[in-house]
């Protein structure tokens, strides 16, 4: 009960890894320290809309694939502006199920599939809005300071 294994070791040994989400980068899907995710090993290359758990240095990150390239993926958190490049060797596993506010979902559920596709579709507009808001906020604060 008190063995300390890494996510990679647990996945290899048990075939799944359960953890609680932390941070806000996957809002509105996952809230900080509220929702539980079930990660399983990756059998093949990831597809667009998949949500892999991957290594960024020592950290484990859970973000969404928004583009698949020959040697890497373009990945971005649902609540993030910046995208990043992730290689296959960084991938630890992929999201298969989750408990959001205690309700169970799988990534094959219609509601989740609809959400993921819609969210990726509207994200350029959301990002443009966030950037514009940030720009206007900077200008406003400069004027106020003066």
């Amino acid at each position: 009960m008190n063995e300390q294994l890494s996510a990679e070791q647990v996945l290899k040994e048990k075939g799944f890894f359960v953890t609680t989400t932390s941070g806000v980068s996957m809002l509105p899907l996952f809230s900080d320290r509220r929702d539980r995710i079930v990660i399983r090993p990756v059998a093949d290359r990831l597809k667009k809309y998949d949500v892999p758990l991957y290594r960024r240095g020592e950290s484990l990150v859970l973000h969404r694939v928004i583009g698949v390239r020959e040697n890497h993926y373009i990945i971005r958190g649902d609540n993030c502006i910046e995208r990043e490049t992730v290689k296959d060797e960084q991938i630890v596993g992929v999201l298969c199920e989750f408990y959001r506010k205690d309700k169970h979902y799988t990534v094959n559920d219609f509601s989740y599939r609809l959400y993921s596709r819609l969210w990726v579709f509207i994200s350029p507009a959301l990002i443009a809005f966030k950037k514009a808001r940030s720009f206007l906020s900077r200008i406003y604060h400069k004027i106020i300071k003066k």
Partner: peptide, 11 residues
């Protein structure tokens, strides 16, 4: 879950 997940990691 919640605040406990800051001190207790893993499964």
């Amino acid at each position: 879950t919640g605040e406990l997940s800051r001190e207790f990691h893993g499964m």
